[in-house]
Design a protein around this nucleic acid. Structure first.
Lengths: 93, 93
DNA sequence: TTATAATATAGCTAAATTGCTAAATAGTAA
DNA sequence: TTACTATTTAGCAATTTAGCTATATTATAA
């Protein structure tokens, strides 16, 4: 359930895409222009993010606009904090 | 720099190991007993976590005791929150 | 229609990952 | 020493990943 998100987040290019989309929605091309990889490579990264439900796409004429799925991202952050945040039993040492 | 941590965290077995170690230090064998994978498989997962600096080991006679590197884990959580948490520019829509 | 533009999909390769079993290592105990 | 126990390391196979180029798809523009 979270597996796809963790996998998606484990790649630094995809993390950069997420950060880009935090600034606001962007077309696939705009996103690709931020990187020096071939366009299809970025397209596939976008697909991974989309399959993880972290981003959402919307056709606009010739373009495809991607935007963050803020809800999922926040839920993921919440899950992470629940599981890994907070104290551990070794705090007194 | 964070890359190793994200990769380490992208595997669910390793995430479970982290959660186990949140309860307190455990020997490699104790950790392995929580899973149905072969013991060397778990040993390698431990190596991945160790290389990511998320856990620390300490010899104790015949045993090797692993414990969480709480500091690194907290730093990672902080980094994640900085980069992915907080508002996005689409909040008003 | 034909051409162009934006994007995705297909198909390939190299490298990394994850599992396994078998063997090596290191410490304890007889 | 010898044997036993805990663990890692080596080496292998199957799968996944991430990149590429070439091609297909879809929409706009001429």
């Amino acid at each position: 359930m979270n597996e796809g998100i963790f996998k998606a987040m484990s790649d630094s290019t995809r993390r950069k895409i997420i950060e880009l989309l935090k600034e606001g929605p962007k077309t696939a091309g705009e996103i690709a222009n931020h990187f020096s990889f071939a366009q299809p490579t970025i397209s596939r990264h976008l697909t991974v993010l989309k399959n993880a439900n972290l981003i959402v796409d919307q056709k606009d004429g010739n373009f495809i606009i991607y935007r963050l799925n803020t809800t999922i991202l926040q839920e993921w952050l919440g899950w992470i904090f629940e599981h890994f945040g907070g104290g551990d039993s070794d705090e007194k040492e």
